[in-house]
Amino acid sequence: MKRIYIIAGLMLAAAIALLMNSAKDMGTYSTFAQAESKNRTVKIAGQLVKDKPMVYDPIKDPNYFSFYIKDTDGKEQKVVLLKSKPQDFELSEQIVVTGQMNNGEFLAKDMLLKCPSKYKDEEIAIRNKQG
């Protein structure tokens, strides 16, 4: 079984090496300030700034959606997403955008929304009763 153990060992080492190497695929949630200084793709979690303009005018461009979010530092930043505006966008509790800074705008490649789930209220009700 020796040879096979060597191969298995090698593969395991490769797996670990790959996972270590994949560290560059991982990132912490950044802030806009960091995105500005690093100038590479980052992931930013923030909240929608509801009193700043939100632009989605499909007649002009169905693939241009811009809005402002506030990151964990409290900085408000304009974000441009080159996709259509997702449903329930306004209801989102948290927005995670992946992308990079580009001429003072954050150009998002991808966006994930965390929406309140359907049963949130009842969940609170259960908790209250317990407490």
Partner: peptide
């Protein structure tokens, strides 16, 4: 995919590879 020329200028220097996947 929209015609990239249509929206050129809208986002200067934007990543051209970003697919614009919707049409009106």
């Amino acid at each position: 995919e929209s015609d990239p020329f249509l929206i050129e200028g809208l986002i200067q220097g934007g990543d051209e590879k970003l697919a614009r996947e919707n049409i009106l």
